[in-house]
């Protein structure tokens, strides 16, 4: 049976374990207005983080299995952008994030995070029309890293698309059913 929910505490603990222990502060301890993970190269506010959480949840929403927010994919995106992308991409990500925030307020008449899934999805489908290169690049990075984080999450790898650490076999003529 598929475990339908993992609670946020478990997810956080897993992320803590993965990230080496020092990165995450529970929201109640965090310095007001800052992102919840330590970042060295990009500056992200609490509000930016909330927008990103809404975006990963829009891309991969909770259904009968956890969605992007619960799997902390927004934090994964931030971690990867902060550590693995070059300064140009980091700049584009930050600019795009900020531009996307402004663009979405103009288009939606309020914060992206406050809109319902239907309106959020509709806006994402119009990113190309935004005519803003930074937004496009930001969305490209965010989507790629969200998908990567999802497919490589413990939840997916243990419940949905199982990763075998020790296959113990090779068959070059397996039936492709």
């Amino acid at each position: 049976m598929i475990e339908k929910k993992i609670n946020r505490r478990t997810a956080l603990r897993n992320f803590l374990f993965i990230a080496g222990g020092s990165l995450i502060l529970p929201a109640c301890f965090r310095e007001s207005g800052k992102a919840s993970i330590a970042l060295s190269n990009i500056t992200v506010s609490e509000k930016d983080e909330e927008l990103l959480a809404a975006l990963v949840e829009t891309l991969i929403p909770a259904t009968d299995t956890p969605g992007g927010r619960e799997l902390l994919l927004h934090l994964f995106v931030l971690k990867m952008v902060d550590d693995c992308h070059n300064p140009d991409e980091q700049r584009a990500f930050s600019e795009g994030l900020s531009s996307f925030a402004g663009w979405s307020v103009r288009e939606l008449g309020g914060d992206y995070a406050d809109a319902d899934q239907e309106r959020r999805l509709a806006l994402l489908s119009r990113v190309e029309e935004s005519g803003n290169g930074a937004i496009k690049q930001f969305m490209g990075i965010t989507k790629r890293r969200t998908i990567q984080g999802y497919m490589n999450s413990q939840y997916v790898m243990t419940n949905l698309v199982k990763y075998e650490l020790i296959p113990g076999r090779y068959n070059g003529y397996a039936a492709a059913t």
């Binding site: 897993n14 993965i18 971690k79 990867m80 550590d83 693995c84 992308h85 490589n152 790898m157």
Partner: peptide, 14 residues
């Protein structure tokens, strides 16, 4: 497991 690697196997920009 892949999810136990901080950057999922990628080396960092630094």
């Amino acid at each position: 497991y892949p999810y136990e690697l901080e950057h999922r196997g990628e080396t960092t920009y630094k």
